[in-house]
Nucleic acid binder design. Structure first.
Lengths: 184, 184
DNA sequence: AGAGCTAGGTTCGTTCAATGAACCGGTAGG
DNA sequence: CCTACCGGTTCATTGAACGAACCTAGCTCT
């Protein structure tokens, strides 16, 4: 990119872009909202060079958007998860997603978002079509697009099923470990 | 950046980022909402290499976000302005700005946004603190941060005064041409 | 004990976008 | 005719992105 900052701009948008505006960063954050927490799950789902992923995660941790902490599920390993300030990015991220859906997505292959409490979809403005509220990410259910051709990795497959945002994604060959953690 | 697209991602966010996610593009769009329409006004305000600005504008026009059309104020010259689809980016852009204000801006030096009809500020969620609506950009008044040190260019100076979003910015050495177009 | 596997990175050479200065053609004014 | 300005394009240089290869620590299998 040759320069990742915007020093001449005295503007909150420029400051925000210096934190979350780099290539790949919004997709990393999207995955974090979907529950991805592990380095190799990000790498597998994003097809991003590992050096770039490593640098982005470090930058996001430094900026207080992600936190790196020991993974309770897997002793000795760390996991990345959104901090409170990172979770506040949801409205911006979701707004950009909805714009992409409206103007640049292939119809019928878009991820769906549902207000968990009302069990109805969110509208174009991100508001629940029943109660009218703009739900926080932890009150949003999401499930993947139609599964036709692309992306055969395990993370993509796991993200097809309806899940709550921010709920940690657990991928394991041991099948009942999944069912132990998923219900709550 | 080496690669501006995200071909492996079957996701509306990836599609959106391919259109508006490149370096400088969000700042260009911000300026477009502030009323900037001319190549050299973008260049002066953003300190962006002209080759990059040229390429970004071309890309945005191709994607249907901006439209290039003859400038009625200056025969023979063109101007760039937001299309309907471009104007729909306001919620996403404003959400990211507000996040920047909350977590990464220098306090007291932030631009202010006001619901024109109610004459009160917008809150953290972008809603009018009086009527509770999320105003469309044409109903938003904005004015610049405190003017202390930075940016001495004419565009920055003109954007200090309260202005309605999307209202074309007219810069002219002829002072009463400004006052002819500004009032409405 | 050794072999192999996995997670989570780092290293490194190559490619290509970003940068900024210089250049260029068309119009407008004097 | 000369000059300025606008809206770009050209070009050499720089440095980020890419992806393949490598590395280390901790299991698991035999």
């Amino acid at each position: 990119m040759l320069g990742k900052d915007y020093p001449a701009q005295d503007c909150a948008l420029a400051r925000a872009l210096e934190v979350v505006g780099e290539r790949w960063t919004p997709l990393i954050l999207r995955d974090a909202f979907y529950g991805v927490r592990r380095f190799s799950d990000f790498a597998a789902h994003l097809d991003i060079p590992r050096a770039v992923l490593s640098e982005r995660l470090r930058h996001l941790v430094e900026a207080g958007v992600l936190e790196r902490r020991p993974d309770p599920e897997r002793p000795g390993r760390d996991a990345y998860e959104l901090t409170p300030s990172g979770r506040e990015l949801w409205p911006a991220l979701h707004a950009l997603m909805r714009w992409g859906v409206r103007f640049h997505a292939t119809p019928g292959r878009t991820r769906r978002f549902v207000h968990a409490a009302c069990d109805v979809a969110l509208d174009e403005r991100g508001l629940c079509t029943r109660c009218g509220a703009a739900p926080a990410p932890e009150d949003v259910l999401t499930f993947g697009p139609g599964r036709k051709p692309p992306r055969e990795d395990a993370v993509s497959a796991a993200l097809q099923a309806p899940r709550r945002l921010l709920q940690p994604l657990v991928l394991d060959r041991d099948p009942d470990e999944q069912s132990r953690t998923a219900p709550r």
